[in-house]
Measured scan of single mutants.
Amino acid sequence: KRLCLVCGDIASGYHYGVASCEACKAFFKRTIQGNIEYSCPATNECEITKRRRKSCQACRFMKCLKVGMLKEGVRLD
């Protein structure tokens, strides 16, 4: 089984260019469509796991980008 490159949960397929789970796919889409900017309360190096993926949105979004999710893949309509 493929794992989500962002949080390590089971991937539902390839989304925005990267093997990812439904939760991270939806999080990435919401962030881009809403043009949301997050800031990390710590040092921008929070560990993102299935259990902790909700704890820091800034680091989760940075990890989405780091593993290769493409903003261009999100439709803005």
Results as ranks from 00 to 15, higher is better:
Arg2Leu: 09
Leu3Gly: 09
Cys4Lys: 02
Leu5His: 05
Leu5Thr: 11
Val6Ser: 02
Val6Arg: 02
Val6Tyr: 03
Val6Ile: 14
Cys7Lys: 00
Asp9Cys: 01
Ile10Thr: 12
Ile10Met: 10
Ala11Glu: 09
Ala11Cys: 08
Ala11Arg: 04
Ser12Asp: 12
Ser12Ile: 06
Tyr14Ser: 09
Tyr14Met: 06
His15Ile: 09
His15Gly: 10
Gly17Pro: 05
Val18Gly: 07
Ala19His: 08
Ser20Glu: 07
Ser20Ile: 15
Cys21Ile: 02
Glu22Gln: 10
Cys24Pro: 00
Cys24Ser: 01
Cys24His: 00
Lys25Thr: 14
Lys25Ala: 15
Ala26Leu: 09
Ala26Phe: 04
Phe27Lys: 04
Phe28Leu: 05
Lys29His: 10
Lys29Val: 13
Lys29Ile: 04
Arg30Thr: 08
Arg30Pro: 00
Arg30Leu: 04
Arg30Ile: 01
Arg30Met: 05
Thr31Asn: 03
Thr31Phe: 00
Thr31Pro: 00
Gln33His: 07
Gly34Met: 11
Asn35Thr: 12
Asn35Phe: 06
Asn35Val: 09
Asn35Gln: 13
Glu37Gln: 05
Tyr38Glu: 03
Tyr38Leu: 05
Ser39Pro: 14
Ser39Ala: 15
Ser39Glu: 15
Ser39Leu: 15
Cys40Asn: 03
Cys40Lys: 01
Pro41Gly: 14
Pro41Cys: 11
Pro41Trp: 07
Ala42Leu: 10
Ala42Asp: 13
Cys46Met: 03
Glu47Gln: 10
Glu47Ser: 07
Ile48Ser: 09
Ile48Lys: 04
Ile48Asn: 15
Ile48Trp: 07
Thr49Gln: 06
Lys50Glu: 15
Lys50Ser: 08
Lys50Leu: 10
Arg51Pro: 08
Arg52Trp: 11
Arg53Val: 12
Arg53Glu: 13
Lys54Thr: 11
Lys54Val: 12
Ser55Trp: 15
Cys56His: 03
Gln57His: 05
Ala58Trp: 06
Ala58Glu: 07
Ala58Cys: 05
Cys59Thr: 01
Arg60Asp: 01
Arg60Leu: 15
Phe61Glu: 00
Phe61Ser: 04
Met62Leu: 09
Met62Ala: 12
Lys63Cys: 07
Lys63Gln: 07
Cys64Lys: 01
Cys64Trp: 03
Lys66Arg: 11
Lys66Met: 13
Val67Glu: 09
Gly68Leu: 02
Gly68Glu: 02
Met69Cys: 00
Leu70Tyr: 02
Leu70Val: 14
Lys71Gly: 08
Lys71Asp: 10
Lys71Met: 10
Glu72Phe: 03
Gly73Val: 09
Gly73Gln: 13
Arg75Ala: 13
Asp77Glu: 10
Asp77Ile: 03
Asp77His: 13
